[in-house]
Computed example of a mutant assay.
Amino acid sequence: MAHYLLRLRPPRASFPEDASGAEMEAMGAHGAYWHRLAEGGPALAVGPVADPAGIWGMALVDVEDEGHAQALADADPIIAAGLGFAYEVMPVPSLILNRGAAPAGDER
């Protein structure tokens, strides 16, 4: 297995402050898609990144190869919606995982 970072770029730097109704609807489907992939699937971590240059989304996935990572990006409903969102798929050649840590907010 290999790790990849999927970086989701929004259609403009001002997103999500000025998101349209169609964009917010597509974001709901996007969130549901990644929740499913995080529940025992290939997604290790998913969420927004508060970059000072503009927010963007990230997913860290554990898959067979880059083709599988790209297929996950391509299958995201936010891409199918055709609203200007785009993914970059980047390999993560080395990763240290804390498999025993509870996510923030988890009361384990």
Rank of each mutant, 00 (worst) to 15 (best):
Gly40Met: 12
Asp76Ser: 08
Pro42His: 06
Glu39Met: 09
Ala104Thr: 10
Gly57Leu: 09
Gly47Pro: 09
His30Met: 07
Leu72Asn: 08
Ile79Phe: 01
Asp62Asn: 15
Leu95Ala: 15
Arg99Cys: 01
Leu83Pro: 01
Ile96Lys: 08
Val61Gln: 01
Ala86Asn: 01
Leu37Tyr: 02
Ala71Thr: 03
Leu72Trp: 02
Ala45Ile: 13
Val92Lys: 11
Trp56Ala: 07
Leu5Met: 15
Met58Ala: 14
Pro93Asn: 13
Leu44Gln: 13
Tyr87Leu: 06
Arg108Asp: 13
Ile96Arg: 09
Glu25Phe: 01
Ala19Glu: 11
Gly47Trp: 04
Met90Gly: 05
Arg36Trp: 00
Ala50Asp: 08
Val92Tyr: 08
Ala2Ile: 00
Pro52His: 05
Arg7Tyr: 04
Glu39Ile: 00
Ala32Leu: 11
Ala81Leu: 11
Asn98Tyr: 05
His3Lys: 13
Ala2Pro: 00
His68Ala: 15
Ala29His: 10
Ser94Thr: 10
Ala81Ser: 10
Arg99Trp: 00
Ala13Asn: 04
Ala50Arg: 01
Ala81Val: 07
Ala19His: 02
Met58Phe: 00
Met58Asp: 06
Met58Gly: 15
Gly21Arg: 07
Gly54Tyr: 01
Pro52Ser: 07
Met24Phe: 08
Ala50Gly: 04
Ala22Ile: 03
Ala2Asn: 15
Pro16Asn: 14
Leu44Asn: 08
Ala73Arg: 04
Gly100Pro: 03
Ala101Asp: 01
Ala73Trp: 07
Ala80His: 05
Leu97Val: 15
Ala104Ile: 12
Leu5Asp: 10
Leu6Gly: 06
Asn98Ala: 13
Ile96Gly: 07
Arg99Phe: 00
Gly57Asp: 06
Glu107Asp: 11
Asn98Gln: 10
Ile96Pro: 00
Val46Ile: 14
Ala13Arg: 12
Asp76Ala: 06
Asp51Phe: 01
Ala81Asp: 08
Asp51Ala: 11
Gly57Glu: 03
Pro48Asp: 05
Gly40Ser: 10
Ala101Gln: 13
Leu5Cys: 14
Gly41Cys: 02
Val61Lys: 04
Phe85Ser: 07
Arg9Glu: 11
Ala53Phe: 01
Gly28Cys: 05
Asp106Lys: 13
Gly54Glu: 03
Ala43Pro: 05
Leu44Trp: 01
Val89Gln: 04
Pro42Leu: 09
Phe15Gly: 03
Glu64Tyr: 00
Glu64Gln: 12
Arg12Cys: 05
Ser94Met: 10
Ile79Val: 14
Pro42Asp: 10
Ala69Gln: 07
Gly41Ser: 02
Ile55Ser: 05
Gly54Thr: 02
Ala53Glu: 12
Ala102Gly: 14
Ala2Gln: 15
Val61Met: 04
Gly82Leu: 06
Leu8Ile: 09
Met27Trp: 06
